[in-house]
């Protein structure tokens, strides 16, 4: 008889633990079923994760200036990049093809750039400048036509590659 009672008690306790815990969950959340099951409103979580357009009114790229190196061999494009992401982003590679008086010039990022979460960072693109020995040190942006742009970013190990063509005048 004692063995039967003990056996019943031993078998019953796990069920009681599960019922007690599930009941506690409901009691803690005031017997509100959605709050018990889901907890935080999923929309609030999504708003935290996804950058809202309304909160981020800046353009992702801001052209600073287009300069020519001292030896007149390299064209340097300085960009200011604004990140809408809530985590740091690494620009692993960026290639821009610009056209100046019908001549295509390819500019490539010299280094990887880390943009802090919802912050900004400077991106420098450099490319060989063919036959412009008499060019001024700073060139007006509207002389250049942006024909192709490719950018590779790393967001927490996820690689995003964006490519656009026929983008219009730089300035």
């Amino acid at each position: 008889m004692t063995a039967r009672i003990l056996s019943a008690v031993v078998h019953l306790i796990p069920a009681l633990i599960i019922i007690a815990c599930a009941g506690s969950d409901f009691a803690v959340h005031g017997w509100d079923v959605p709050a018990t099951l889901i907890g935080e409103d999923p929309l609030v979580v999504v708003e935290r994760l996804v950058p809202a357009a309304a909160d981020f009114d800046e353009e992702p790229f801001e052209l600073n200036e287009l300069t020519v190196s001292e030896d007149r061999s390299t064209l340097v494009l300085d960009l200011l990049v604004h990140s809408p992401f809530t985590v740091p982003v690494t620009i692993k590679d960026a290639v821009v093809q610009v056209a100046l008086n019908g001549t295509a010039i390819t500019l490539r990022a010299s280094d990887e750039v880390i943009i802090p979460a919802r912050g900004s960072g400077s991106l420098r693109l450099e490319g060989a400048l063919p036959g412009l020995t008499a060019a001024p040190a700073v060139l007006p942006l509207d002389q250049f036509t942006l024909s192709r742009m490719s950018i590779t970013v790393d967001v927490s190990g996820i690689e995003l590659e964006l490519e656009s063509s026929e983008l219009g005048v730089l300035g």
């Binding site: 599930a22 506690s24 099951l37 907890g39 999923p42």
Partner: peptide, 12 residues
Amino acid sequence: IHSPLVWWLGLA
């Protein structure tokens, strides 16, 4: 992201 019910059942 967590569900309270999953947390309490995990505790159980």
